[in-house]
Design a binder for these strands. Structure first.
Lengths: 339, 339
DNA sequence: AACGCTAATCTAAACGTTTCGATCGTGTCA
DNA sequence: TGACACGATCGAAACGTTTAGATTAGCGTT
C-alpha cells in the first residue's frame, strides 16, 4: 500500500480510504490511485488488516471424521454458506480424539478465527474452558456439550431411533441388536435412549447382551456384529447407530454366510448417497444435512454480525426414517397376521 | 505479551526470546515470565506473528466437490498430514466453477497462505496468472494444468482406463458406453484417451454415439445413461469416468427396468467405501488415495521447508482395477469360448 | 587497574494495515 | 472582508509480534 501511495503521490490514508470507501476521495486522486494499484498489482494484505481490525473473516470447523458421509455433507454445506458470506473456513478433523481436538481448537484460536463450529469429541471440560475464555462465538454441531451453554444444532436423536426401532418391532422383530459408539457424546446417549424407549413402549425386555459398543469405525461394527451373530440366540435385526459401523455390519453378515434382508434385517443411522442404488437398499434414519449445515452457519453468522448478547439458541431438527428394503417382516408375524 | 512483560518486569524481547527459545534467558527471569504467562493466560497472537514473519503456517486446499468420495478421502489425508506438521488448512470447494475457483484462490492468497494445493477447474489461464505472481508454492492435485509448470501428483489415468476397458473387451463386450465429464481437465482427457486406445488395440470401432459428456454430477450420469440405453443398438457395458455420475447410471438402469450385471455391465472410476458390501459389488478403478494425499502434502511441505529451487516434480501414480461383479461375460463370448 | 570477552537483557524499528485528529483550501454568509 | 463550515487530504499512532543491534554486568587476563 505504501508503494501504491508513493506511485499515486498520495498518503496511505487516502489509499485506504479509497479501497474501503470509508471517506470520499476526489475523482482525480481516485483515478491516480486505481492506476497505481493496477500497475503495481497491489493486493491488500489480509493479515495486516486482521491484526489491526481484530477480525480475520475466518472460522474454524472441527469434525471427528470427514469421511463419515454425514460430516462430509454437513461440512460441504457449511463451507458453501461461509464462502457466500466472504469467510474462509479452516477445517480440522479430530479423529474422535480428545487431545487432537484440544490442540486443533487451540490452533484455531491462536489464528484468531472469528468463530467456531464444533462437532465435539470426548468430555466437554477442556472445550468448556477454551470456549469460556476465548471470547469467540461457538456453535455446537450434532453433539451437545454438558456445561457449555452456547448455540447448537442437533437432531432429535432419541425420537429418530425410537421411530426406527418401533418400525422394526412392527415388522415382528423381538430381538434387535443395537450397535453404538461410546456413549459419552450426546447423540449416542440419546439414540440409545430411543432404543430403550421403543422396546419399553412395546413391552419388550431389554437384553443387555444385544447392545454392543464400538468406536465409530467400520471394524468396530464388524466385530460387534460378529459377536451378535455368533451368539446362540442371535437377533433377527440389527440397528447400527452410526454409518461407518454399518459397513462393518454388512461385511460381517456376508462373511458369516448370511444375507440381508433374508436372514437378518439391518437399519442404520445416517443416509448415504448410494442408499437407493445398490442392494439391499438400506433402511436408514436420514438427517437433514442441508438444514443442519445451513442452520449452524446461520447461527454463527448471526453472532458474527454482532448479535452477541442473545441467549444461546438450541435448534433441534427431526430425522426421517427412509424405509427401503433391508428390513423384512419376521415370518412368524406374517403368519400370525394372515391367520 | 506486553502485559506479560510488565508483570514479569522484563522487556517484551525477553518474553519473546523465552517463548521461541531464540536466546538464552536466565532461570530467574524464565520463572517470572512463565508465572506471568500462567497468571495472565497469555496466548501468542498468531496473526501478529504472521505479519512480522511473513508466514502463516496455513495452507489453502481447493477441490471441486468434497462430496465426491475421491476428494473426501484425499482431503482427509491431506488435512491429517498438515495437522501433524503444525499447519492449518483452509478448505474451499469450487463446485467445478471457474469463477468460484478464482475468487477462492484470491481469498486464500489474500490471507497469505504459505502454500496451495489445487484440484483445479476450468482452463488454467487465470490459475497460471495467479500462481505466477503470488510466489507461494503450488501443487496441483489430480488435474494438471497446461502452462502451469509446478509440482503435481496425478494418476496415470489413461493406463487405468485402458486396463478397465480392456477388461470389458476381454469379457466379450464390443459396444461399450463411455460417460465422461467435460474434457477440459486432464484426467477426463486422459481417461478418454485410454478408452480410445483400448478399443483401437482390440481393433474395435470407436462409435462416437457411445460417448456421452456430462458435468460430473449424478444427474448428468443419469441422463447420459438414459440416452445410451434408449438407443436402438444399446451398449452391453457402460464405463463411467467419474464416481458421482455412476450413481446416476445405476439409477437410470433401474428406472428403465434393466438390471446390472444381468442386462448390462457397469464399471466406473474411483472406488468407494461401500463397493464390496452392496450388490452389485462394483468393479472400479481405485485410486491410491492415501498415497496421493500424502505425496501432495509431502511435495508442498518440502517446498515450505525451504526447497524452493528444485525443478517441478510430477508424480504419476498407478490406479488399480478392482474386479468385482458388476461386469459379466457376454453370452456370445462364453459360447464361443466353450465351443 | 585496565581491558576484552561473553552472556543476558533491553531498546526500538519493522511488518502492512486502519483510523483519529489535524491541516489546508475553498466557498458561503453576515 | 473576516469568520466559519465543510470537504479532501494527510501525519502518525496503534494492532502484537520478531529481531538487529545496543547496553550492561560479570569475569578472567595481562
Amino acid at each position: 500500500m505504501l508503494h501504491v501511495a508513493e506511485a499515486a503521490r498520495v498518503s496511505v490514508a487516502t489509499v485506504s480510504a479509497l479501497i474501503n470507501g470509508t471517506a470520499t476521495v476526489s475523482p482525480e486522486l481516485s483515478q491516480r490511485i486505481e492506476q497505481a494499484i493496477r500497475d503495481i498489482g497491489y493486493k491488500r494484505n489480509a493479515i495486516a488488516r486482521s491484526l489491526k481490525m481484530g477480525t480475520t473473516r475466518t472460522i474454524g470447523l472441527t469434525v471427528p471424521h470427514i469421511t463419515n458421509p454425514f460430516f462430509t455433507d454437513v461440512v460441504s454445506v457449511i463451507q458453501q454458506a461461509f464462502d457466500r458470506a466472504g469467510y474462509a473456513v479452516m477445517l480440522c478433523c479430530t479423529d474422535e480424539d480428545l487431545n487432537t481436538q484440544d490442540d486443533q481448537i487451540r490452533l484455531l484460536l491462536d489464528r484468531m478465527v472469528d468463530g467456531l463450529i464444533v462437532a465435539r469429541v470426548g468430555d466437554g471440560a477442556i472445550l468448556k474452558a477454551i470456549v469460556d475464555d476465548a471470547n469467540v462465538p461457538v456453535v455446537l454441531l450434532d453433539r451437545l456439550c454438558e456445561g457449555v451453554d452456547t448455540d447448537a444444532v442437533v437432531l432429535d436423536n432419541q425420537r429418530a431411533v425410537f421411530d426406527a426401532i418401533t418400525y422394526l418391532i412392527d415388522l415382528g422383530h423381538r430381538r434387535i441388536g443395537y450397535i453404538t459408539g461410546t456413549s459419552d457424546i450426546s447423540p449416542m446417549h440419546d439414540r440409545m435412549a430411543g432404543y430403550r424407549e421403543a422396546l419399553q413402549a412395546a413391552n419388550l425386555p431389554i437384553a443387555e447382551e444385544l447392545i454392543r459398543f464400538g468406536n465409530f469405525h467400520e471394524i468396530d461394527g464388524y466385530n460387534a456384529t460378529m459377536q451378535l451373530l455368533s451368539a446362540h440366540d442371535r437377533p433377527s435385526a440389527i440397528f447400527s447407530a452410526n454409518n461407518p459401523m454399518v459397513i462393518g455390519t454388512m461385511k460381517a453378515i456376508r462373511d458369516i454366510g448370511l444375507s440381508c434382508p433374508e436372514d437378518i434385517s439391518v437399519a442404520c443411522f445416517d443416509d448415504f448417497r448410494w442408499s437407493d442404488v445398490f442392494q439391499p437398499q438400506m433402511t436408514t434414519v436420514a438427517q437433514p444435512v442441508q438444514a443442519i449445515g445451513e442452520q449452524a452457519a446461520n447461527l454463527l453468522l448471526d453472532r458474527l454480525a454482532g448479535n452477541r448478547e442473545a441467549p444461546p439458541r438450541k435448534l433441534v431438527l427431526k430425522g426421517r426414517l427412509m424405509i427401503r428394503d433391508s428390513c423384512r417382516p419376521l415370518r412368524a408375524v406374517v403368519q400370525s397376521v394372515s391367520a
